[in-house]
Write a protein that binds this DNA or RNA. Sequence first.
DNA 1: GAGTGGTCTAGACCACGAC
DNA 2: TCGTGGTCTAGACCACTCC
Lengths: 221, 221
Amino acid sequence: MARPRNNPGDLADLPTELRPDRPKGDQIREILENLTRSLAVGTVLPSERVLAERFGVARMTVRQEVDRVVAEGLAARRPGGGTFVAEPRPSRMLASSFSQDMVARGITPGAKVLEHRVAAAEDALARELEEPLGTPVLHLVRLRTADGEPMAIERTALSLRRYPGLEDVDLAQNSLYGILAERWGVALGMVSASIVAAPPEGDDAELLEICLLYTADAADE
Amino acid sequence: MARPRNNPGDLADLPTELRPDRPKGDQIREILENLTRSLAVGTVLPSERVLAERFGVARMTVRQEVDRVVAEGLAARRPGGGTFVAEPRPSRMLASSFSQDMVARGITPGAKVLEHRVAAAEDALARELEEPLGTPVLHLVRLRTADGEPMAIERTALSLRRYPGLEDVDLAQNSLYGILAERWGVALGMVSASIVAAPPEGDDAELLEICLLYTADAADE
DNA sequence: GAGTGGTCTAGACCACGAC
DNA sequence: TCGTGGTCTAGACCACTCC
């Protein structure tokens, strides 16, 4: 029969109908935002078809709002699987692929590895990575370039328990996100590593070298 | 008659038909990306309906791809007006509203003004702002907080010739983007000020105070 | 008033993943 | 196999802007 895979009980707390005086999409988006915040990370959300039926709207209407919630970093899609709650980290707002963004702008992305060091995780970092103390971690610092111009400094910490062999990958040429997606099947939405644009020039030029963002990584369970 | 407002000649260089072996959306997105790169900033793109007719697809198909191009920062919408080419600055990739993002996550955003200084623009900054030498510029540095926790340091330079009176606005309580939109009608897509997430804690904690991003602002003509 | 983006409908077929 | 997201259709009505 037409029973959805995920628990129908998930729908119990959702409003039954939408107010007629406001755009349905806006209301659905708010409901989805609240839902992602109230559920545990990784929880599968009701499917688009189920939500559409629940609210009495077309699937495209639901889908458009799911798109926005995903763009906000609150949820992520798993094609063929479902849509699930993403990590609520604020750094998520910067979690996109530098390479991808540059290519979309017609700019040739590059990278220079400034630091490439493996060390055992302790206290704060281990907590951040949700790994046990002493887990080997690859500390990676890269200067990202756009058409040769230095554009950003990227600082990442990645668990080698999660990504064994990553320390041997040439990250000067490759997109980190591409590698993670390709070899470890990591969805972009699951990575909370962040990228920071650095000053191209200007009065603050002397700060270029220290402009950075500390970020840890986290991935699926 | 049904003649569109923008120049039909804009369509001359566009492909006539799409390959049947690849998703139409992907091809349309690539065409739009190339188009935005080949046209001057501020140029109005062909309308969604015109593009749909041109490629022989439904308007929703075009619209979805325009959405993505807008999300990439290559274009921006003007409701009732049209869709136009946005500034190609890489910093655009971070140009979103911190307040907005935080609210979407159910977090209360705040700000502490670290620097609030008016100075005359010279050389690099004037060029960056596309303003004449000596233009009064508001240098603003804010520590952005999420539920009271320091999350980001935001450094902005705004021309007071463009936004007269901005120096008197209380930016500790208000969203900068909200103010610009409200009082000066600036579309979010037109602002290239950027926001950088700062480390919540960790081994690099001593760098928190200097983690920053220099960015200039730019707006419509 | 004509054109534009914003929203919304009620379907369709496909590829992928879980079972 | 069947549910899922991914893509796509061919329309519709609205609010807004530009002329």
